[in-house]
Design a protein around this nucleic acid. Structure first.
Lengths: 224, 224
DNA sequence: CGTTGCATTGAAATCCCTCAAGCGAGGTGG
DNA sequence: CCACCTCGCTTGAGGGATTTCAATGCAACG
């Protein structure tokens, strides 16, 4: 089930100007609207035209690629405030799905292209967004290629903690399966590693989806 | 040992205009010069200022990150004609080293920045270079996270074959160690997988550094 | 002709995956 | 309200793919 509305949203994350005005990052504003997606709904698929850029207003999104035999690799998680789907190519190379029910702001690519043509600062900003993705991916590649399960899970928990502004107890919107496909591990290995960390007193697991960071130093020493 | 010269090179890959004129891709030209690096020499290191962008005139380069305990992940190989080192940030996040003796053309970042400010087409072109890196990395991430040794080596051989314009016998400039660190495998696994492919008649190994693709279809079916 | 550096090959160990069962929370229907 | 079902998570046992450790081979070079 999916709903959308041209601005004027009930809980919209953007201004109430007629037509809507979405701040992409700092400098770029563009007209847009918002849509609601429900859990596991596809936002866009591989090879679909990349006519929009998206910003998470609330909820969480996974960006992934799937192999023909079902193996899946999640490239990144997008949380509130994150921008995704920005690709200079004509089509999306990866697919985006809602992890939880979520509200997504959409910006037309054509509007951004026009802004980039007029204003070299805007162009630089768009480039910077792509570059940021690139750097995060480089870090992740090191993890996938050269790190063991304990290091991967530790790095993941620290990443999530940092994104939740370093709070001690973090809420994980994604399932163990999502975590596994992000880290290149099976759900069993993820689960075992988490309970191991709990037994050692490094983290607490109040519920399935909550993690309390008790010994950040220990995590950091493992995460490499 | 390293030599450099302002244009006027003996075997330079760029025009002989006074001051030098380097074509970065199709549209952008910028003044520059060329340097020679010898095998295993560092071109730039992690966290060094990113004042230049580089283009391989001849030879091969590896782009990598190294963990404190010596584990290494190679992000990409740069062959003749490839552009690398373009990062919007102030410093390089990865390091670049010469795999073989090679000749590298250098372009000042400041010149590119000026071109991007003046000309939105140039800005888009720079953005496109970063985006291309991103897409290659996304593909590679799937390999590192979800593929087995046979699939990784097959994909690597196909990638190298494609980059050598699909020739049947390809020359590998990099060592087994480099291949392993690129694919997230040990040199032993790389070696064993190659000999396995040879025994099955899929490839031929005339020498350490040469691979003959005998059964491309088989490689493609494994590479996923 | 010995040395040096890389590559191959073998045997054993390790880490993670696969398969399988059990558990617990949340939802549904009787 | 409780029984029942489902779904996601955890836990255990066993197996397999890759790593690790160790030895050998091979070509280039002084």
């Amino acid at each position: 089930m999916r709903t959308f509305e041209i601005d004027g949203g009930t809980g919209g994350g953007f201004g109430s100007t007629a037509g809507g005005l979405l701040s992409l990052t700092r400098g770029i504003s563009a007209p847009g609207f918002a849509m609601n997606f429900s859990r596991n709904e596809e936002i866009y698929g591989e090879d679909e035209p990349a006519d929009f850029v998206y910003r998470v207003v609330s909820g969480a999104v996974r960006i992934s690629r799937i192999l023909s035999d079902g193996r899946r690799q999640i490239a990144s998680f997008q949380l509130a405030g994150d921008v995704f789907g920005l690709e200079p190519g004509q089509v999306h190379a990866l697919c985006a799905e809602a992890i939880t029910d979520c509200r997504i702001a959409l910006i037309k690519r054509s509007a951004l292209d026009r802004a980039a043509d007029r204003d070299s600062g805007a162009a630089r900003e768009l480039w910077g967004l792509t570059a940021k993705d690139l750097q995060r991916l480089q870090e992740h590649m090191l993890l996938l290629g050269r790190k063991g399960a304990l290091e991967r899970v530790s790095a993941f928990l620290l990443e999530m903690s940092d994104r939740a502004s370093g709070r001690q107890t973090i809420e994980l919107p994604m399932s163990r399966s999502d975590i596994g496909d992000y880290l290149g591990l099976t759900i069993e290995t993820v689960s075992r590693t988490l309970t191991q960390l709990e037994r050692e007193g490094v983290i607490g697991l109040p519920s399935f989806r909550q993690v309390k960071i008790c010994d950040r130093k220990a995590l950091e020493s493992w995460a490499g």
